[in-house]
Amino acid sequence: MSLPDRAGAIARHEFRMMRHNPGLFLQLILMPLVMMAFLKGAFREALQGEGYAGANGAEQAVPGLTVMFAFFFSGDVAFAFFREHGWRTWDRLRASPASSVEIMVGKCAPSFSMLAVQQTLLLLMNAAIFGMHIRGPLPALFAMGIAIATCLLAMGMAMAAIAKNTQQLNLMGSLGAIALSGLGGAFTPLSALPQWARAVAPASPGYWAVRGYRTVILDGGGLTAIAPMVLMLGLFTLGFAAVAAFRFRFDEAKMALM
């Protein structure tokens, strides 16, 4: 058997578990949709104040909340490893013919797909439902989606490596998602953030994620215009991946309360 065979078997298994877990769909797609409906109007004035005269508010609410819920999902990426410990299946998996690389690839590929699909679906559905006008080219939007999904996957892996138990993971996932996406302008346009928050915002991948989406949606920017944001997200990805590679131990016992 080759790497794709065993990694594929693990990925298919992860997809089967996702299929049996409709809560994931609610968390990733439905909840942000509902919140967008409530918040869209509140952002209209802010965007118009920034000079986007034709904006209806969805141009801020949609990328902001899409990024925020994607950040929440990075906790699920890590939880995919923790629950194996809670179910006592981790050692069984390690004792199978699957190598460490195959286990990583097999468990991460479905999470990456979910993140990429969530980004794409939310942006396109909202364009249709809330009349969000995307001024830039779609390939640029997809490029941002891929860069964000990759970064959050690496962030999830770093959390899986660092957290010792599910309480720590929940704390990291929730606080991280709120802080990092909030700094990026997920809750409110960056111009409305306090001065100190605006100063530290570039230290958050959420900032580059929201800024990239806004560049395409509001400013009509293409691949060249989003290149700096993609690059910054790439650097964050490398940082998170380095933490994961340095810290993740396959034989480390994780306390997982299921």
């Binding site: 298919r12 049996h20 004792a95």
Partner: peptide, 25 residues
């Protein structure tokens, strides 16, 4: 290997548990 503590995937069916380990091998 069947370790001492029972380790099965609760979210999926019995068949899907078996399919997974069969495919891994």
């Amino acid at each position: 290997l069947a370790p001492q503590e029972v380790g099965v995937y609760p979210l999926v069916t019995v068949r899907e548990n078996l399919v997974f380990f069969g495919e891994l091998h």
